[in-house]
């Protein structure tokens, strides 16, 4: 079996999905099921104090017994906020230590602040968190995060929620070639072909949220993404043919083609 292994745990799906931006928890659950994802990201936020105490809970719709929940630090711009958020997440999820770290640097682009990300990762790893880390597509930073002890490195394909697809496949390729831990494209996938391209490059997996949640039909798009990731993975494993620039090669035999018919005279006289 061709499985994804993260921090010693085996997963059969290479598609990881977020749970944000859905209409309601029913849609979230239907999309997650259609995606086949086993690892799903969640955010940690203040609960409403004293109002609507009976509002539905995400963890009732997507129980931790069924999915590997990956709490994130979305919205955190400092080391301290990110680390505190994940400590709360670990307490919330009964000691679960697999987390997604992101430390943002700019509210307009949501671009990661890699300097702060490195500092936060160091603290979290010392506290025995298993850190899957969102980062830029800088191969040197990705390698440093790996050497520090992160369990997966997750470079952006393009900006979070942009749907712009894979803008720098060459950098992703360098990161993949250098890495001994799983590399997952996180952020920027817009449609199924983007996910396939990521997997064809040799990514170990793809993490996405908006591409599914913001589709006109999220559940159908979730199903498309599942197939796209599987197709890209199989194509990567199969090994694509070499590209032949400006030179064709017929697919059918060149021998045995029937001869051109002799022309009959026009009036039948011979």
């Amino acid at each position: 079996m061709d499985n994804l292994v993260i921090a010693g745990k085996t997963y059969s799906s290479r598609l990881l999905v977020g749970t944000g931006k859905y209409k309601d928890f029913n849609e979230t659950r239907a999309a997650v099921e259609a995606s086949g994802a086993e690892i799903i990201t969640v955010a940690i936020r203040r609960t409403n104090i004293g109002q609507n105490a009976n509002e539905p809970n995400l963890l009732d719709a997507l129980p931790p017994s069924k999915y590997t929940l990956l709490p994130n630090t979305a919205g955190c711009y400092t080391v301290d906020d990110a680390v505190r958020t994940l400590r709360l997440a670990r307490e919330l999820l009964d000691g679960h230590s697999l987390v997604k770290l992101e430390v943002l640097g700019d509210p307009r682009t949501l671009y990661p602040n890699v300097v702060e990300t490195l500092k936060a990762a160091e603290i979290l790893i010392k506290e025995d968190f298993q850190v899957m880390v969102y980062t830029s597509d800088d191969p040197i930073m990705a390698k440093q995060l790996e050497e520090m002890g992160c369990v997966a490195v997750m470079p952006l394909a393009s900006l979070i929620g942009s749907g712009m697809g894979i803008l720098n496949p060459w950098n992703l390729q360098i990161i993949i070639d250098n890495a001994k831990i799983p590399v997952l494209v996180d952020a920027g996938v817009g449609t199924a072909s983007d996910a396939t391209i990521a997997m064809e490059l040799g990514c170990d997996g793809v993490l996405m949220n908006t591409a599914i949640a913001a589709a006109q039909n999220p559940v159908l798009m979730a199903s498309a993404m599942r197939k796209a990731v599987e197709a890209g993975r199989e194509a990567y494993l199969a090994g694509r043919m070499a590209k032949k620039l400006y030179s064709a090669s017929p697919s059918s035999p060149t021998e045995g083609i029937i001869a051109q018919a002799a022309k009959k005279p026009a009036n039948g006289n011979s």
Partner: peptide
Amino acid sequence: LEVVVAVGGG
């Protein structure tokens, strides 16, 4: 005090 829950997120 901070009192938190898990919510949808990516």
